[in-house]
């Protein structure tokens, strides 16, 4: 083998591909005619090689892969997962497809993945009943009114949402009980409490009550039966007169409680104001008639 043979071999691929220039073709032919070794090589590469028949080719590939790199399924799976994003290069797509053509497990996985993702996309927008839109519009109409009302109602709205969240917490009742206890202790239970004397006064009032009651009882037993009847009648009249006020007070109190529980503070405040009005009216009705009776 000499330098001419080396130059001839360099032209071999081009010759097989039919792309030799005229000068090179002349040299290629003349050298092949003169050199036995190069002529044999040309005959060998130009002849049709016997192909592996039937299932032999994949078997051979599998056995070669098994003793060299090992199965490429891991790499194929990595590409499979990235394929829906369109992030594979042309070469990677080609390599993946080549693997899928020969690996049944990966081909199954690819089909399952494709089908599952199509179903996932279907799940993105399930059908809804037509009433849903109206329910949403109804729910947002209250919010709309608040939005138009200014910053204060919006703040109340946010506070209401926060309150609802708090009320839904299981620890909420304990926390409220704890806070109420602290408030009571601060109000009545310490030497600096503003209402520290209230319990003593209340106790004194209670202790004084029996004497008053005995006096009243003595008076009552001392007077005639019509006097007792008169007191009873007076109390009944007062009760009857204030019955609507008491019913209003009860109703407004219940509504305020329900609104407070649902975090609707505007409504709760309205109802509490109304309850305050009821209470004032009730007291006035009860007392005024008493004074009138005294007159």
């Amino acid at each position: 083998m000499n330098t001419r043979c080396t130059a001839w071999e360099a032209l071999l691929d081009a010759h097989l591909g039919g792309g030799l220039a005229a000068d090179d073709a002349a040299f290629f032919r003349s050298h092949a005619a003169a050199c036995d070794r190069c002529r044999d090589l040309l005959r060998l590469v130009s002849a049709d090689l016997p192909a592996l028949a039937g299932e032999e080719a994949p078997r051979l590939a599998d056995s070669v892969i098994a003793v060299t790199s090992g199965p490429a399924c891991g790499r194929a799976e990595a590409l499979l997962g990235a394929r829906p994003d369109g992030g594979l290069s042309a070469d990677e797509s080609l390599l993946l497809q080549g693997h899928l053509d020969h690996c049944r497990a990966c081909a199954d996985l690819a089909l399952t993945l494709e089908s599952a993702l199509a179903t996932v996309r279907e799940l993105a927008e399930p059908e809804l009943d037509p009433a849903f839109t109206f329910d949403v519009l109804r729910a947002t109409s209250a919010t709309r009114a608040r939005k138009r009302g200014g910053a204060l109602p919006r703040l109340a709205d946010r506070f209401g949402a926060w309150w609802q969240g708090q009320a839904a917490r299981p620890q909420f009742a304990w926390e409220v009980a704890f806070a109420a206890t602290v408030v009571l202790v601060l109000l009545f239970g310490t030497p600096l409490s503003p209402a520290r004397r209230a319990p003593a006064k209340a106790l004194a009032a209670v202790q004084a009550s029996p004497g008053w009651m005995i006096d009243t009882a003595g008076d009552l037993t001392g007077v005639a039966g019509e006097r007792i009847g008169g007191v009873r009648q007076d109390v009944t009249e007062r009760r009857n007169r204030t019955a609507p006020d008491r019913a209003d007070l009860l109703r407004h109190g219940r509504e305020a409680g329900a609104a407070l529980l649902h975090g609707n503070f505007d409504t709760a405040a309205q109802r509490l104001r109304a309850a305050g009005g009821d209470l004032t009216r009730l007291w006035r009705d009860w007392r005024d008639d008493g004074s009138a009776a005294a007159d």
């Binding site: 997962g81 829906p84 994003d85 497990a105 996985l109 399952t112 993945l113 599952a116 993702l117």
Partner: peptide, 27 residues
């Protein structure tokens, strides 16, 4: 990016676990 790829594969394998290797036909 990598989790997205892995999550899809996990999903496909979970489907196969539910309906068998020939899950592609079933789904």
């Amino acid at each position: 990016k990598s989790r997205s790829s892995r999550a899809r594969l996990e999903l496909a394998k979970a489907v196969q676990d539910l309906v068998g290797p020939a899950g592609a036909e079933a789904t």
